[in-house]
């Protein structure tokens, strides 16, 4: 892989991490049982058609939800 691609990957990963942290910060004061905490997975999956595998994406969204709740 060339340096440019590696750099681009690093910047995308960094943005993903920052966005996940921001999502967790936004949820910090919202009760754990509030249904609005969950990602709107169906909506999100319906709106995306990229090469990322849909099943894995669904798993990622579940993990995001767990991570934002501070769960392992």
């Amino acid at each position: 892989m060339d340096t440019s691609s590696r750099n681009q990957l690093f910047h995308i990963d960094r943005a993903l991490v920052e966005l996940l942290q921001e999502r967790a910060r936004l949820l910090a004061d919202i009760p754990m049982d509030d249904p609005g905490r969950q990602p709107r997975s169906e909506d999100l999956l319906r709106r995306t058609d990229g090469p990322f595998d849909a099943e894995i994406l669904e798993e990622v969204l579940k993990s995001v939800s767990r991570g934002c709740g501070g769960q392992k």
Partner: peptide
Amino acid sequence: ARVMAAVTGRRLHA
């Protein structure tokens, strides 16, 4: 603003 702040390495003020 929240999204743009995050992707530029900052965050939205609480």
